[in-house]
Design a protein around this nucleic acid. Sequence first.
DNA 1: CGCGTATATTCCGTTGACGGTATACATAAC
DNA 2: GTTATGTATACCGTCAACGGAATATACGCG
Lengths: 129, 129
Amino acid sequence: MQSVFEVIAEPNRRAILSLLVASEQSVGELERELGIPQPMVSKHLRVLRDAGIVESTVDAQRRMYRLTPERLQEVDDWLAPFRAFWLAHVDALERHLDRMHGTAAPAKKKKSTNKARGAKRGRGKGAKK
Amino acid sequence: MQSVFEVIAEPNRRAILSLLVASEQSVGELERELGIPQPMVSKHLRVLRDAGIVESTVDAQRRMYRLTPERLQEVDDWLAPFRAFWLAHVDALERHLDRMHGTAAPAKKKKSTNKARGAKRGRGKGAKK
DNA sequence: CGCGTATATTCCGTTGACGGTATACATAAC
DNA sequence: GTTATGTATACCGTCAACGGAATATACGCG
C-alpha cells in the first residue's frame, strides 16, 4: 500500500481526508463523525500517515491529525492530461444538444466517430457533475 | 468495483488510460505497449468500460478503445478542496525557509511567481506495483 | 467450409485489504 | 498506586481483486 491512488480508493479514508480539510481532528472526533469503530479509524489513519497524507501530534491523551496534502498532487498531476480531454467532450455534447435543440421526441442518433478538437473555453472549472 | 477511485487504483489501468490519451488503441497495441498478457489487458479494459471511463467500437476483428473521461471529473471534484490547501502549504514552507535564513538559497524575497510550481514531480504515466 | 487472427471469457489459486473483537499502550485524574 | 479516558496494535475470518493458463467467441480470408 504505497500508492496514493490505492490509499484514496478506500471510501472511509476519503471521508477522513475530507473532514480534515476543515480543521485538525482527534481520533475520537473522527470516530463520531464517521460512525465507524475506533480501531477502524486508527487503522485508516495509520495508512494515511504511512502514505504521508496526514500527520499527527500529541495533545494529552489525544492525537490530533491534520492534512499534509502534498502527496495528493500526484493524483492531480496524473489527472492533468485528461482535463483538456473532458472539456473537449463537454463541448462536443453541447454542440450536439444545440443541434438537437427543441426536439421533444429524441430520435436514435449515433455518435460520430471522430471527435472535433479545439475546445472553446469560457466555462470555468468547479462545475458540478 | 463501481468507484472510479478503485478503478484507477490499479497501475495497469492507469497506464492504459494514459496510453489512450494520445489516441484510440486496439487491444493488441495496448498489449504490446504495456507488456502484459492479452487476457489481462482485456480484463482491465472490461473494468474500465463498466466504469464508463472508456468505450469501444468494432473494427474488423479489432476492438478500438478510446477515452470517455467524464467520470474522471469525480476525482477532480473530490480533489478540489485540497488544492488550495497544498498551495497554502507550499507558501507557508517558503515563508518559513525565508525566515529561517534567506542565505543558503538565492531565493527572492518576493513571493511573486506562485504559479510556477507543480512541475516538481517526475510522476507521469509509468506504473509499477 | 476450415484456418488464422484478434479479443473475450472462464476456471483457478493466491494474496492482501477490510472489518470485527479483544487487548495493549499512553496519558490524565484521583 | 488505581482507575478512567483515548488511541494503537494483534489476532482472525472473509471476500474479492489480481494474475496465469486454457478455452471460447468474433471476424476475415481463402
